[in-house]
Amino acid sequence: MKAFEATVLSPADIDSLLQLQQNNLVQHISSQTAKTQGFLTFEYTRDILERMMTDMSQPVIISEETLVGYALATSIRVGEEIELMRPLVKMASELTLNGSPVSQLRHYFMGQICIREGWRGNGLFDALYAAHKTLFSPYFDCMITEIAVDNLRSQAAHARVGFQKIHTHRDATTEWVVVAWDWRP
């Protein structure tokens, strides 16, 4: 298996990322694909991505000039500005991670991770998260995200990388599991 190395999203690649996102949103794929391959729930816009890029690098993998995977990083500041992220940002401040209040930890949020169909199962997911750890662990204690409870493939992949469940909740339409990757020694 080829080893993949992540780079960071450039403004020229935003349209490619947005197209990959569109192709994997739960409303644009079959229920069988959602069940076996995972799915995306949140829809980001160019404006939101540009705001996210002002605070944090956005790890991506590009192969032969094609964006084949991405893993979006969201600062607390930008998360508070994004309607979709605001509830998680607020909730996280009330949670604990391995005995420590998240509000006292240096943390940020995983906005979304996606691997292009045909590229899954080749180590890109792990490579993107390795890039997060390399880029951000000197400045942050942990990363937090939430996954739809019925997205079993994503939950398993996150657990394999090192994320642990810290909370579950339900919003108006979906049940979520909140997970965190603790980088503290």
Rank of each mutant, 00 (worst) to 15 (best):
Ser93Met: 08
Met85Phe: 13
Ser100Ile: 04
Gly79Asp: 09
Asn98Gly: 13
Glu81Val: 02
Pro87Gly: 11
Leu88Phe: 11
Arg77Pro: 01
Ile82Leu: 15
Gly79Phe: 03
Glu83Lys: 08
Tyr108Thr: 05
Gly99Asn: 06
Phe109His: 14
Pro87Asn: 10
Met85Ser: 12
Pro87His: 05
Arg86Glu: 15
Gly79Ala: 07
Gln104Ala: 12
Leu84Thr: 10
Met85Trp: 02
Glu83Arg: 05
Lys90Gln: 15
Tyr108Phe: 15
Gly79Thr: 03
Glu94Phe: 02
Pro101Ala: 06
Leu88Asn: 10
Glu81Arg: 05
Lys90Glu: 14
Leu95Tyr: 03
Met91Cys: 08
Leu95Asn: 01
Ser93Gly: 12
Met91Pro: 00
Leu88Glu: 07
Val78Tyr: 00
Met91Ala: 13
Leu105Trp: 00
Glu81Cys: 11
Arg77Ile: 04
Gln104Cys: 07
Ser100His: 07
Leu105Tyr: 01
His107Cys: 15
Ile82Thr: 13
Arg86Trp: 04
Met110Pro: 00
Leu88Trp: 09
Arg86Asp: 13
Lys90Trp: 02
His107Pro: 09
Glu83Pro: 01
Met110Trp: 01
Arg86Asn: 13
Ser103Gly: 05
Leu84Asn: 12
Ile82Lys: 09
Glu81Lys: 08
Pro101Ile: 00
Val78Gln: 05
Ser100Phe: 03
Glu94Asp: 09
Leu97Val: 09
Leu88His: 04
Glu94Tyr: 04
Lys90Cys: 02
Pro101Gln: 09
His107Glu: 10
Gly99Asp: 10
Glu83Thr: 15
Glu83Ser: 12
Ser100Val: 04
Pro87Leu: 11
Leu105Lys: 02
Glu80Ser: 08
Leu97Tyr: 06
Glu80Gly: 12
Glu80Gln: 13
Tyr108Asp: 11
Gly79Ile: 00
Leu97Asn: 11
Leu105Met: 14
Ser100Trp: 01
Ser103Thr: 05
Ser93Tyr: 02
Gln104Pro: 00
Arg77Asn: 02
Ser93Cys: 05
Glu81Tyr: 04
Val78Ser: 07
Arg86Leu: 12
Val89His: 01
Ile82Trp: 06
Leu84Arg: 09
Arg86Ala: 15
Met85Asn: 08
Met91Val: 06
Leu97Gly: 14
Leu88Tyr: 05
Phe109Arg: 04
Glu94Cys: 02
